[in-house]
Write a protein that binds this DNA or RNA. Structure first.
Lengths: 396, 396
DNA sequence: GACCATAATCTAAGCTTCGAACAAAGTCAG
DNA sequence: CTGACTTTGTTCGAAGCTTAGATTATGGTC
């Protein structure tokens, strides 16, 4: 029983303001009148509130629209230059750092190659810090306008100020990435799993847009995912929820790199699919190799679709989502050709409840969305968050 | 992006009052001072608020406690006689109706035998309505003090005023139980899956108490369950979430009665376990037969434990709960002897994240808790709900 | 230019919570 | 038995918030 809920009358104001800002951010430019209808607040409140926000430069006017024979509506929108967010994608082969404005336009980029299979935590941290400085300089952003840094990493991120990261693929056991970065920058930090940051990108700007209960699968070399409940990412008690890659689909089945058996990831990432097909390919060739398999019509592909359907069926029964998004480069490759098969396989395994296959859709954002999603973690607090504040992994 | 959040200053009051009431209900008798500390509200607010609640008979004084050399604390508690709730358990062999006061003491009971394998919806509805009248009369409850009727049924309950029920075991395709009952009583109705009502009972009064993220497994003849997120039951987009019985554990495995293959329920309810062991038993003998199997040390039992561990591992990875409760008569029978084995099996399949086996515990409430849990649905609105109001399946 | 329609702002009223002063109800030392 | 002390609970004024309704702003139409 979480002791949540607004307490004082100023919390009320904050909450309503966040709601209004959210409506404006996701509902495009809108007039005060429309905002009033959208948020349920009275016109008077919207007026005073927008007045404050305009004075604070959080929002700006955005033209006018004729109104059927009356005073024209003044459109308002979020001021893209009010603040900037840095998004970082810590990947297998590179550290990618991008600077976004509030409208999520990229203002500057920096890349740092990382030699595969050798991910020294301190080196990664140095790359990130260097990248942050570089993009802020290149983007010519006024000091104090950078709202924070979001970092998407592989593996599981423990809650707490140290942001301990466990990533088997990197050989990271309990790397205090948060602490390492904290030593090098005063900016607010948000560290989270890369599949989750990408899921949030897809939720905000991609195929998940507008949904409140959704599953976003990220099928790349491995399998990750994001569970969305109540319009925001579900993180569970220890921020380790949503690990769809380790959903079991075959009791006692193939060994997974996590050490257990029968995980979805033991069958379904590009790595596992190629392994099952007996194809040897290092990570650089995976994409071409998988494409060839698909071209050849390998039976392993059909099996993979069936197994994905089994996994999705479990998710449908557990979460009853309104949408399932399949993303990640391998997921998009498979889904691009075989979406109907995936839908059919899911439906065939979902007999106990009504299920609409149309709810399974492809992602709209490419694999580059990890950094974008990481940046959204930075600006999410502006909108108050639909969930309790402590569930946002901030390190302030 | 749900447009949630308090709007006006009176909503604020309602929310704070609900929070206070919740603290009082679950925190036992408490003084105004303790409530102030518990809720974070100022002493002044607590004072005026408790004044109102006392005047409305929602709460009552409950004795005094000496305070270390000062004015004694006056204890307050929820008034058990403020309101009453009817809980209904629609089971395989009987319809059970119970009247509870606010402290969940049983004030009256009524039972109606139902011939197995012949569950006429209208007959069930008549039994329920008769039972409601009977227990209200027997309990001698003042008119207008009955807050509503909660009904726990098998299968999946669709949202909406009709409360369409789909229950394969009853042969119910789309029974509008809500509409049938609505025609016979003016009381507020709440219809939900029996596994969910029992889960809520276990969450409020049993082994799930105090947790905010939990899984409650109900292993009886079949397998059901409840997923708790943010302190309340997670229902998903169409109120069909949490169907752990149809989590897949063996792709292409045994046929489940739902029509799909490899569901947990195809391996794990008493029915499935006995079937796998080659034992023929009708539902009345299941309990004895399962006990015999356990006594004999049948290898099927060991397999079942292993498979349960696989299923629980999936749930841990997806939900990262702080507690997993195993309930239901078969679950308690297995867990009573083999809890350590279940824990070990779960841990063995959960390699990718830190997992404490101690979080798996046995339920504390018997199988009779379905009606109790159904009654909690009635009084839950008093506490404002941690979630948005529309997610509570009320038919008003 | 008078009149109408729509948008945005201003004003007064009604709630709410809070801090601080104040009242209540005990204990304890002498 | 009295007075000091401690702790609990209440009252009151202050500050903030949202709202309904009145008012002002800004355009078109006849």
């Amino acid at each position: 029983m979480g002791t949540s809920g607004r307490r004082t009358v100023r919390d009320l104001r904050r909450g309503n303001q966040a709601m209004l800002l959210r409506a404006l951010y996701f509902g495009g430019p809108a007039s005060r009148n429309e905002l009033s209808a959208e948020t349920g607040l009275s016109a008077a409140t919207v007026s005073t509130m927008t007045g404050d926000l305009l004075a604070d430069d959080v929002i700006v006017e955005a033209g006018q629209v004729d109104s059927d024979g009356g005073r024209p509506r003044v459109l308002l929108k979020v001021n893209p230059a009010y603040g900037y967010a840095v998004g970082v994608d810590v990947g297998e082969t590179q550290v990618k750092v991008e600077l976004f404005d509030l409208e999520m336009n990229v203002r500057a980029r920096a890349h740092y190659a990382v030699r595969s299979a050798k991910h020294d935590p301190e080196l990664v941290a140095r790359h990130i810090l260097a990248g942050v400085d570089a993009v802020i300089a290149e983007g010519e952003v006024p000091a104090g306008r950078v709202l924070g840094v979001g970092v998407g990493v592989p593996g599981i991120v423990e809650p707490g100020a140290d942001a301990l990261v466990r990533a088997k693929t990197f050989g990271w056991e309990a790397v205090p990435l948060g602490a390492l970065l904290r030593a090098g920058t005063p900016l607010p930090l948000h560290v989270d799993n890369g599949a989750k940051t990408m899921g949030q990108a897809e939720l905000w700007f991609g195929s998940g847009r507008g949904t409140s209960e959704a599953i976003i699968m990220l099928v790349g070399s491995g399998v990750g995912g994001t569970v969305v409940t109540g319009g925001s990412i579900y993180r569970g008690a220890g921020k380790a929820a949503g690990e769809v890659g380790h959903l079991k689909i075959v009791a006692g089945g193939r060994a997974c790199r996590c050490g257990a058996r029968g995980c979805l990831e033991a069958y379904l990432g590009a790595e596992a699919i190629l392994d099952r097909a007996g194809v040897v390919a290092d990570s650089a060739d995976e994409e071409a190799a998988l494409a060839r398999l698909l071209e050849e019509g390998s039976p392993v592909i059909g099996e993979s679709v069936e197994l994905l359907g089994v996994g999705l069926s479990s998710l449908v029964h557990l979460f009853n989502p309104e949408r399932i998004v399949i993303g990640g480069w391998a997921g998009l490759m498979l889904g691009g050709r075989l979406l109907d098969d995936i839908r059919a396989a899911t439906a065939a395994n979902t007999q106990a409840q009504p299920f609409d296959p149309e709810t399974v859709v492809l992602g709209r954002l490419g694999p580059d969305a990890v950094a974008l999603g990481a940046a959204t973690l930075v600006i999410e607090p502006l909108f108050g968050g639909t969930v309790s504040p402590e569930s946002v992994p901030t390190i302030a």
